[in-house]
């Protein structure tokens, strides 16, 4: 069973050590929640997995391949989809074009239509706005578009960077439910970076807590959610 395996990963920006010896693995059909304070290195971790930053040392393995030596495009074509921080939709393009762009490398022109319709079915608000430019979308709609654009390529690994940022609690709850169902239905490997520990732990099987660039906890999500001292110390609730 393929897993995403991260071993001894260290990343620095010049003199700043953003990650030090990070190791954990994420399994198929499971959501792995990555938690930690601001500046802990969560975003850096996801960027290192997709090759947007190069690690100083360590490996990222998936499906028998060493990802850390591949180009970003190659990693993505390998089935790793990354939804970056901050709803990075391409504002100058329409909703439909954004989705089309996500499907380009995986599907032929003919196959694309139905795949995109599936995304519209998953996120109905997008369907009503398919001809609109992405800069006219609300924050929540943008987040749906960003996630939809990642899903449209039918990835096997999905990396999400703070998808709930700025969303209303009810929207967040719906998003989490969609994620949970998707993960199980398509046997995805999901790495979910979140500030909102409570909601991400509710759908995660595993939790990784990062503090100052190091993994301090790597446990079953239920256990972390149940450990009030740990929660209090690192997650602040």
């Amino acid at each position: 069973m393929p897993v995403l395996e991260i071993e001894d990963l260290s990343v620095s920006y010049g003199a700043v050590h953003a990650l030090t010896d990070v190791s954990f693995s994420a399994a198929e059909g499971e959501v792995t929640a990555v938690l930690g304070a601001n500046g802990a290195g969560k975003t850096t971790l996801l960027r290192a997995i997709t090759g947007l930053v190069r690690p100083r040392k360590g490996t990222v393995r998936y499906d028998g391949e060493q990802l850390e030596k591949m180009s970003v495009e190659k990693i993505v074509r390998h089935g790793v989809a990354h939804v970056p921080e901050g709803r990075s939709v391409i504002e100058e393009m329409t909703v439909d074009e954004n989705l089309r762009l996500g499907s380009l490398f995986r599907f032929s022109r003919r196959q694309r239509g139905p795949v995109i319709e599936e995304i519209y079915a998953l996120f109905p608000p997008l369907a009503e706005r398919r001809r609109q430019h992405a800069n006219t979308l609300s924050g929540g709609e943008r987040q749906m578009l960003a996630i939809g654009r990642a899903l449209v390529s039918r990835p096997k690994v999905l990396l999400l960077d703070e998808p709930s940022l700025g969303l209303a609690p009810i929207v967040t709850a719906r998003l989490m439910a969609v994620l949970r169902d998707l993960t199980q239905a398509s046997n995805l490997i999901v790495v979910l970076v979140e500030q909102n520990a409570r909601s991400s732990l509710s759908i995660a099987q595993k939790a990784v807590v990062i503090n100052l660039g190091r993994v301090v906890v790597c446990e079953d999500a239920a256990k972390v959610a149940g450990d009030s001292e740990l929660r209090h110390h690192y997650l602040g609730y």
Partner: peptide, 21 residues
Amino acid sequence: DLGLRMRAVAFAPETARLLGV
């Protein structure tokens, strides 16, 4: 499609790469 990719690269090169362009 080529034009779509070119526009993506022009507007948001990093996002484009993350979409396999």
